[in-house]
Structure formats: C-alpha cells, structure tokens
Nucleic acid binder design. Sequence first.
DNA 1: TCAATGCGTATGTCCGGACAATCTGACTAC
DNA 2: GTAGTCAGATTGTCCGGACATACGCATTGA
Lengths: 245, 245
Amino acid sequence: MTLELSVDRGSPVPLYFQLSQQLEAAIEHGTLTPGSLLGNEIELAARLGLSRPTVRQAIQSLVDKGLLVRRRGVGTQVVHSQVKRPLELSSLYDDLEAAGQRPATKVLVNTVVSATAEIAAALGVAEGSDVHQVERLRLAHGEPMAYLCNYLPPALLDLDTAQLEATGLYRMMRAAGITLHSARQSIGARAATSEEAERLAEEAGAPLLTMQRVTFDDTGRAVEYGTHTYRPTRYSFEFQLLVRP
Amino acid sequence: MTLELSVDRGSPVPLYFQLSQQLEAAIEHGTLTPGSLLGNEIELAARLGLSRPTVRQAIQSLVDKGLLVRRRGVGTQVVHSQVKRPLELSSLYDDLEAAGQRPATKVLVNTVVSATAEIAAALGVAEGSDVHQVERLRLAHGEPMAYLCNYLPPALLDLDTAQLEATGLYRMMRAAGITLHSARQSIGARAATSEEAERLAEEAGAPLLTMQRVTFDDTGRAVEYGTHTYRPTRYSFEFQLLVRP
DNA sequence: TCAATGCGTATGTCCGGACAATCTGACTAC
DNA sequence: GTAGTCAGATTGTCCGGACATACGCATTGA
C-alpha cells in the first residue's frame, strides 16, 4: 500500500509538523498498521522533497509520543500497543468531557482567604497573605463525583463564578495567558470524615481517593494549589506513561 | 560566574549528551541558578567548538526534561521550580530504595495458573492458557505496605523466588533484555475485604489505594499485568508531570 | 503621556552532506 | 551442520550555513 503524504510549503505550519500530523493520523486511522516499517528516512525525504533532518524531526516527535520505535540498522516501525495519550496535565473537567460526559460544576465558595502555613508553602507566598479560594463540587449525571478545593495567588486571574461553572479552571488560566509548565502531584486514599461524606453523598468512613497538586507556570511560579477528593466508585485515575529511554 | 563546560571528542559518548549532562549537573548543583539565562546558542557553540545543531540537541533534551525553558527572542533560561523527575515507570521497589528505605519482599505465591478472561485480555493471550502468577508482600520497616499480584506471559522470564525477594520485578525484566516501553495504569481506591485486610494488617473496610497496570515492551507485547493494593497510611503516589507543549 | 514603529537579538525552521554505529541476513570456512 | 565473517541497509551523530519569526526595548510620533 502506498501512504499518501504531502506537504504544503506555502503553509505557515512547519513542514516537520505537517508530516508528523499526517503520520499520526495514518497510525490512528490504521493506514499504517502496527509493526509495519515506515521506510527509510532518506527515501522518505526524497519522496516528499524534504531534507532528512526535517523528516527526522517529524519522526522523532512521534517517537517521543510513543507511537513509533526506531531501531538502528532495521528501521522505524509503528508500535503495536494501543497508545492513547501519555498522561497530560489535564483537568477533571477536560477528562470528563473527553469521556463523553457533560460535567456540571457547582461553585460552593469563591472568596479570598488568608493563607495558612500549608497553602503558603505550596504557593510560595507569605503566610497570612491573601489568596483566592475556590471550592467546587463536580457532578456527572446529577451525582456528585468529586470535591475540589483550590487556592490561587492573588491578582493572577479574574475568578468569575459563572465562568468557573461553565468551564474548567485550567482552561481559564490558559485563556488568561498563563503557560502551564509542570505540576507536582500526590495521589492517595483515606476514610471520609462525616463532613466530606455528606458533601459527596457517601457514608462516613467510606474510602475516598485524594489528590493534591501544585501547578507551576513556565517562570516557575506556583499558580495553583489544589486538594481534591474523589468518589472511588465513580472515578479513578487512568493514564498511559512512557519509559524514558 | 563562568560556567565550566568542555567536551571530549575522543569519548564514545555523544557530544550533545556530554553537554546536556554537564548542564544538568550545573543546574542540579546550583551553578546555574533558576531563572538565569543560558547565553545564546551560537556563542555557546562557538565557545565549545561545536555546531549549533549539536548544542540545540543538548538543550532540547533538557527542555524535554522540564529543566529549561526556551523563549524566542529572549533566550533559554533555567526553570525556577524544583523539578525532580517527571514520572517514570518505576517499580515500587525502586521508589522505596530511592527514598532511602530498605524494602523487603516476601513472595507468597510463585506458580503457573490458567489465565482468566481478565488476565487474558490484559496480556493479550488466549483465555485458559498458562501464565505465571506472582504474589508478593512488600514491607518497609517490618510493616506490610503493599500487596502485589502480577501475571506474566509464559516463557518470558525465569522467575526465581530468591531473586524476586532480592530485587524488583522490573529490574529482573530489564536484566533479561526486555525493553520496557509504556504502561497503562489505573489508580483508584476501595474498602478492604477481610482477606485483604488481614494480609496488610488493616481492618476490614479500611480504605485501600489500588493500582492496576499493564506494561508493554517496545514490540507492543504485554509483558506484565499487575493488581496492587497499598496501605494509604503508608504509601501514596507522588510524581511530577510536564505539560506537553 | 501614551501608543505606534522600528531594530537588535535570540530561538525556530530547514537544507545538504558526511561518517559512525548497529542490526540483519547471507555467505564462507571448519 | 555449525559457527564465524562480511556486506548491505538503516538509523545515530555531527557539521556549517541560511532565512524566518517572535520578543523586548528604545525611539518616534500623536
């Protein structure tokens, strides 16, 4: 079979990116079957009228994504297993939306509080200084699913309650021009207190899935600290991860 | 301050790798302070007697690791935040060892069983075919910490009980020439059954942290399926993750 | 005073070529 | 028949250069 590949030099989209997208689409679509060889880089470059470094850059990006595997002396082949996505820094809202559910959000608290020692340490601000606090309840199919408590540095974002209910916090941050860079997460479990149980329509002592996260932008500022509790019967963390070579 | 950088052209270690390692060490050591500019690539290349693509390759690898941030028109600077490691496919054994603890392992079961539908689906083998089963109890400071149940395809590995107690499963796989590539994970929580509770010295109904994982090698074969339960008072999943640009 | 413009600087993209390292498979020698 | 050897194929590394693009800042203009 011959793979239809072409690049548009008039497009502002980088050539290597055009190529990697077409290859990824072909893998996704099944045109490039798992295990099949991709054909050597030099010939592929010649066929497309590109240079080898450009082709290599395209292939490399897919290798980084885990879709391709290179073998010296053999060639580049499509990975057999079904790689979906290698763990992104995704918000619960996006996760649910991607799963086809229509998540609902109920903002319980949207205010400014004085930072406790824990919050101050996480966000890197002075203890006692003002921080935004947002408490939300995330529902799916009318059932409570997770209780989210977040703290943000002051003057970072305009936290409109209506907007918080219509979209996710991360989406609002990105829209405000904040470049999310990395996050430090901790996932655990514990028994629900009576207060937590009531919020999530569980019973006191029921197991809860917990997640704490501090998110940093590309300048190294902490832009968000969150403590979340999930109902384990309704939610679990699913992700694919790659081995760093 | 002047950063000491040099490369050895006689070494079989790639030049870009030598450079990236030195830069990483300088960041780790604090010689390159967070937020500081790295100096433009062209001059850096000239100073080291390297070409710009080589220098770029070194820098790019650190950008991928989350240690550096590039800004067009500005330069490349060291990320402020404390990036430790961006979530590896690590075994519990390695995690504990890295944390300074000396993990102990007790192999409870090491046998061959007939694959149930669940196991067969995860490993991609025929239902009812033979698979290895390993059940282990992981202890730290004499206290049970996690209960690990793993299934492996037949004839993949020689599962020596003594070796399983002395090291981790992943380390044994790597030593056997298996190239780990990716894994699909699911982390959740549930209440302990009385059987599970007894194994982990908890009470029935106590919250447990659960993890399921299927690991694939670079040919796409499933090489391991594991169902783990952790005591949440003793263990939680901590990791750093990067945002895919 | 404030906004628009222009310029320098640094990274982003792309090219064409060269040699080295490694894997596969076929051939050869014992 | 088996083991060692060699050649072809393919990716890995590296070079030197060219132009495009975006950011920050100083200058200019209203």
